[in-house]
Design a protein around this nucleic acid. Sequence first.
DNA 1: TAGTATCGGTCAAAGGTCGA
DNA 2: ATCGACCTTTGACCGATACT
Lengths: 413, 413
Amino acid sequence: MCGVYSYLAPLSQTFAEPVIAPLETVHFVHSSLESSIFKFFTDGGGSRCFICADRATGKHYGASSCDGCKGFFRRSIRSNQKYNCRFNRQCIVDKDKRNQCRYCRLRKCFKAGMRKEAVQNERDYINPHRAKGQPVGTLSVDVLLQAESSRPVLFSPQSPDVSTKKTACVGDVFESMKQQLLLLVEWAKHIPEFCGLHIDDRVNLLRTHSAEHLILGAARRSLPYNDVILLGNDFVIPLRGAGLEVSRVALRIQEELVKPLRELDITDKEFACLRAIVFFAPDCPGLENPQVIRYLRLQAHVLLEEATCEQRGRFGELLLILPPLQSVAWQMVETLHLAQLLGEARMDSLLLEMLLGEETATEEGQSLTFLQRFLHLTGSDLNCERRNDLRSSPANFTSVISHSSASKYQSNQ
Amino acid sequence: MCGVYSYLAPLSQTFAEPVIAPLETVHFVHSSLESSIFKFFTDGGGSRCFICADRATGKHYGASSCDGCKGFFRRSIRSNQKYNCRFNRQCIVDKDKRNQCRYCRLRKCFKAGMRKEAVQNERDYINPHRAKGQPVGTLSVDVLLQAESSRPVLFSPQSPDVSTKKTACVGDVFESMKQQLLLLVEWAKHIPEFCGLHIDDRVNLLRTHSAEHLILGAARRSLPYNDVILLGNDFVIPLRGAGLEVSRVALRIQEELVKPLRELDITDKEFACLRAIVFFAPDCPGLENPQVIRYLRLQAHVLLEEATCEQRGRFGELLLILPPLQSVAWQMVETLHLAQLLGEARMDSLLLEMLLGEETATEEGQSLTFLQRFLHLTGSDLNCERRNDLRSSPANFTSVISHSSASKYQSNQ
DNA sequence: TAGTATCGGTCAAAGGTCGA
DNA sequence: ATCGACCTTTGACCGATACT
């Protein structure tokens, strides 16, 4: 629908430069600010439509004219209509008879000085109702934001004063990790596109980048702080003074993630999209259907691009958070691995499975991993396992779950 | 006389899509402080609106723009309008069509560097340098392309027929790596912004992501092939049949890098920018001046964004190559490390230093690493070492260098 | 003080809307 | 489907302010 119309001359336009008269008139109208009343009085001797002698509303397309002739001229030019006169091309064009012959009306428009060049291209619709923006993909920012809100960030509810918080011991760190991993599962289940995936892929996605999600969450929580990393259970890891290995990771979180994110002043929307981009990683090894994941990630990053409002460089800066995120996450996993090997820490099966990628067959003849069972239990796959079965998992587990999505559970059972 | 006509048609411009041209032009204007005269001369073809390529009336809200886009941006921000695109959010925004899609126009405003913070009360700025926004920098696509061309890709010169190529043995792989690392140094020296950095930072940058550059180069060379990775010295690594560890890395290069890049059909420009983004990594540990590196990377990714010609999602897809690139590079380094530890391979000092990060103090009382010496020799730092000194380095070294930048050497000596 | 840059506002004349 | 009374948006122009 673009402006090809304008350069086609519908009618023989037989004169060039029209008049100078309208000038004064127009000035007159200009200077009145309360033009509605003013116009009414000056109507009689003042502005008349050059085409039909109706009351003029100003100069349009080069000629003083009424709204009717203005609209008529625009429509005629836009649609490139070819009119014909049924009579002698000498029809009278006045207020009463102006609609009786469109040929003669248009001719008179040109005669009065209207120029087709003054008609512009069609513009955007003003009424948003007419503009049906396509959702483009199925993933939506709203869904992501909603999923995100299932993971409380603890900004306001808890005291923002860092000095009142306790320093985490190893057990507290593991506890926090476990909670966050379970929240990650909850998060994923808020996304319909995730729930529709093959069970193996769901497990795969949840596993493969779980460490990055932990780090990402920690970085986000720690945005307001300069010298600690804030855990999900409200404990803190001081950047200096903690165990060497731990504080090394903490320091990197601060330097490589918190600082850039703080500088960017990342928004909730952006963060929600970023998490989805990390999550839908098509290069997870062994994915059944990497193309679908790839497409979901594409949607997520297009959403991120929109969420950045296209501020120059912002989208790129946000995406460039991902390599250091991956790097720090790996360092954390390595640290965990080492601690595990050296027997310095006892991790429960969820941590082992999700972070270190170990299969923990806790029960005889039971090949399902913890994660698989958990997804089965509350996922879209129908299943008859009962919540009690999960008691075999560590304490505090059910409480975390029921906290994060109590209503969902109740309605399901 | 009335203003609206003046911009309508009479001198209907016929410039099509200058695309990237305005950028340089505007830089030019920026840097000229005596802009009054300068502007006068360049007005005709000079300062153009970043958004619609109409004649610019100056910088508005952070971007060189015309009055139309200026007003549009202000109104949009003030009224907090949410527009929708009726099409694919890919509308062309130029002088003629800028009113056809407000969504895409606003998007392009942001993309051009307009900031909504500038709309409100930026009046009270103390320091005009702050309001000037980003100088948008010195890094240019042309320089990057030129630097890139110093690294022949071997597409056409060599036979594209893969069946005639020999399978690489371990020594061939190392040889190729060494060549490529030296070419990386050459590449870097083509970039003035690099040469201006502190010597430690130069060494740091060259070292820290060298493995990624090797992988990136290999991926690019291998774009035309499905079942081999092509090395820089024209040997190939078959995806299957090579040593287990080697082919594992090769397979990942193919799956996670070559395939996506091939699907995107990456252009030379884009590749040049991508390499610069990988190179200017502000999170290298121990960087003297990370802020400068950060800024250079920002410039590089803004250039990449421009190079993608605004194809929706393309820029993001390219940036999302980086995490797997990092991941594969690490796997390669780990493989090398293991081979080194197990005594399976003898690597020369350059590989040890750049890929495994080992300091090889080959000479007594000589604390300079190989890389430092090499940078000194040919870098901007004046230095009296002679080429012969480099003979202590492995054979084939000088030949590679003189091949890649013979003229430079000759003129320097 | 004059000059430059970039904010803000104004309003004629473009545009679109939608019941008749 | 067109008309036209009525409303919205556009952008050329100009004034104000802060520095040089």
